[in-house]
Write a protein that binds this DNA or RNA. Structure first.
Lengths: 106, 106
DNA sequence: TTGATTGTTTGATCACAATCGAACATTCGT
DNA sequence: ACGAATGTTCGATTGTGATCAAACAATCAA
């Protein structure tokens, strides 16, 4: 018997359950801001992790993506061996109006 | 000769020099959010530190006020033996539009 | 099936942030 | 001059966050 595969399942919290400090914390890191800014340039696009030119190693980047997921800023899904991520733009904007716009401006 | 007194001087950074991550970080702490919310209830009022009902001790609170000053969110001045603090509401709103409003809402 | 791709997890380190008690400084009242 | 009031600073502790290398897992391509 081949071991049953457990496809990675990413969490996707309801925005109503995301407290403000968690959202602030998620956007308080330069690397995560860079990720969100690049995503804002193509809001419809689903990004693989290696489409970003980031300083930290992949382990660290993986952690940053998880932080962004927990804050309800992005959502991710498995596609083949890739992890595709996209902004939850409308939902996040509805929960924290104006916050994403601040990220775009810098 | 009595030693010359050096009245405490609080910093007051220009808002243009405050980076977004610093502002986010400052607003990512529950205690500091509580301070800002209480100040938002009376935007014109100058608050002494002991007007807040906060959990941490006074040393910690003193540090939180400094963090808020560094982020350009509040300004402080010495009045007698008190340290009076108030929001830099218009300036901060001009630099980070909508951010303070998010704090008010929760 | 073998090896390369893509990301996650683990274990460890390092820096920084929050916290406290105690000592200190300044000012005010008496 | 003395003591209370109000914060600040110092030293130490504790916890959390960012980071990396290495091992692991799943998938795809040849």
């Amino acid at each position: 018997m081949t071991t049953t595969s457990t496809p990675k399942k990413y969490q996707r919290p309801k925005l109503a359950s995301v407290p403000l400090p968690l959202a602030m914390q998620a956007l308080a890191d330069p690397c995560r801001l860079a990720i969100v800014r690049q995503m804002l340039a193509q809001p419809e696009h689903e990004f693989a992790c290696n489409e970003f030119d980031l300083e930290p190693g992949k382990a660290t980047v993986s952690h940053h993506f998880e932080t962004l997921r927990e804050a309800g800023i992005i959502e991710s899904r498995v596609e083949g061996r890739k992890c595709l991520s996209a902004l939850r733009l409308e939902e996040f904007e509805a929960r924290f109006p104006g916050l994403i716009e601040l990220v775009r401006e810098g």
